[in-house]
Structure formats: C-alpha cells, structure tokens
Design a protein around this nucleic acid. Structure first.
Lengths: 146, 146
DNA sequence: CTATATATGCGTGAAATATGCAATAGGTAG
DNA sequence: CTACCTATTGCATATTTCACGCATATATAG
C-alpha cells in the first residue's frame, strides 16, 4: 500500500489523514482558486456534514505543511490555491472583480529589483495586483469621452 | 479667510466640512498608514467622542473625493493613506508584518508589461507585495542553516 | 439668525473567522 | 483484530470588522 505524497506531507509533520483533509485538498486542487465558502460548498457535495470551522482549520493545516497557499484579494475573501499549479500572480479588476492569473515569471524582473534595491524577498505567489481589466478600462474610457 | 485645498475638495462634491473629517484626514496624513482602528485612536486623542462608524463613513467620503486611498494588506485590515504622498507600493513582511513603502516608479516596467501583455491597467498605488523583509529573511536563513 | 439637508452618534445587525469542549475516529502497540 | 491514546471534528458561541437605521446635532445658504 503506497501513501500518496500529500499523505506523507501531513504525516511528516505529525498530522493525521482524515477524509475531511483529503476532500478539502481535492476541492482546492479542483477549483483552482477558492474561498473558504466555495471550498465548503465543494466539499459538501461529497460530505454534507462537514463544518465550516473544519474548513478553516483544515486550510490552515494544509497551508502549514505547504500543500496549499493563500492570497488576499481585495476585501475580505482570502483565496486558497493548490501548490501543484505553477506559481501565478493574480490580477484583480477593481470594477468587475474578475481575477486573472498570470505566470509569476511576468514579475521576475520586478522581483529581482525588489531584492536588490530593497533587500525584500517578495513572494510572487501571494501577490495580488489590483487595477482595471481590459473590458472595464474600456468602459471608463467611454465615460471620460462622453 | 482662505479655504484649504482639502476643504475645497470636499465642497466641490457637495460635502460639508466637519471637525471629524478634518481630524480623520489629519490623522491619516500624520500616521502615514493607518487602519480604521488606528485612525480612531488617533482621532480620539483630540476628540474622544468620535464614533467608529464615523471613521468608516469619513474614510469612504475622503476616499471618494480623492484625498486618501486604501490598500488591503494581508488579512482583514485595510490601510488608508494620504494621497498627498507620492504614490507608493507597500512591501509587507509575512513574518513581522512590517510595512515598507517604496516609490511606485519601482514597478513602472512591470506595470507597462502588464498593460502590454495582458491589457491590464494596474493601480500600483493599491498594490501590496508580500514577502520577507531583510531582517526576517535573515532569521529564516539562520534557521535553515541550524 | 433661521431653515434645512447633511453628518454624527448610538444601537443593532450581518459576514467572516476563531475558539472551547465533548464526542468521534485515526494510528499504533500488542 | 482489539484497545487505547490523542488528534480532529462538529457544534455552539465569541470575536472582529464593517454596514445600517434613526433621532439628534450641526454646517451652510439666505
């Protein structure tokens, strides 16, 4: 009987393997991004009894062992995502709230500059950049022309 | 009797000049950065009767007329800052939570790249970059050597 | 100084997250 | 496979952050 890598990851740190943890991790992987509420919904499709508190505690645990990470996007709702995916930066539209992911590599130079100039070791994966998406920038432009 | 620029700014949009608004604006300018709670404390040193609701509403008003802006840094606590200051980017340490401001110009190239490659009009002023500051990066390094 | 609409203070409410505790269930030794 | 020990869960509740309704106070025009 083989253990999966994620199970080992938890065990190494003295955590137990539970269905809740498995489901939460699967949901995060499947959703790509997800807020705690969204993850709850997803988990409850399979196991309706799972409690929101468990989601929060599980997300903490999974993050502490490095299986997932989270980003704060704007106001209130943290977004969790799989560590499997290639690191990415979130572009968040202030207007329509749409979130676009771009490869972390897009900020490689910026990151290097922060390191060299400010001795700051930026975590690009955690970064959310706010602004206006193409569609919404277009809308504002129309207004200002009117 | 001259009006100050901030008073005009409010009046232009049909807002009234009140001691609360003056105090909140002064606090923000003085604090550099401040969460609503911190701003409340600061304001209450002068006027202890001011209510937290007033702080929230006043911050909204001041932001709507462009006298201040806010950034979401990590979890829950938005940070308001003066618009007088030159636009800056916040570097937030994940470990010690220290916030460093750097000129927005540091991200000029990155910003341009986002525009050209992704048609995304980034608001650098709103941007918070998380990572490790020099001191905390040093600490982790020690640990990993130990 | 007066009229009046805007602002404030206060109590209340809602949303998101944390916590204490008893019950449940992994994991391990035998 | 069984029993035991402790991590984990579910539930109820507390906390934190922010929004809202309404009566009162106050800034501003005339």
């Amino acid at each position: 009987m083989e253990s999966t890598p994620w199970e080992d990851r938890l065990r190494e740190q003295g955590f137990r393997i539970t269905p809740q943890r498995q489901l939460v991790l699967e949901s995060v992987n499947q959703l790509g991004h997800g807020t705690p509420e969204e993850i709850l919904s997803s988990v409850q499709k399979t196991a309706s009894g799972v409690n929101l508190s468990t989601i929060y505690r599980t997300l903490e645990v999974l993050e502490s062992v490095g299986l997932i990470t989270h980003t704060h996007i704007g106001h209130g709702a943290p977004v969790y995502h799989s560590q499997d995916e290639s690191p990415h930066i979130h572009l968040v539209c202030d207007d329509c709230a749409e979130v676009t992911s771009i490869p972390a590599a897009a900020a490689a130079e910026f990151s290097l500059d922060l390191q060299e100039t400010y001795s700051f070791n930026a975590h690009m994966t955690h970064m959310a950049v706010t602004g206006l998406c193409k569609a919404c920038a277009g809308k504002s432009e129309l207004k200002s022309h009117g």
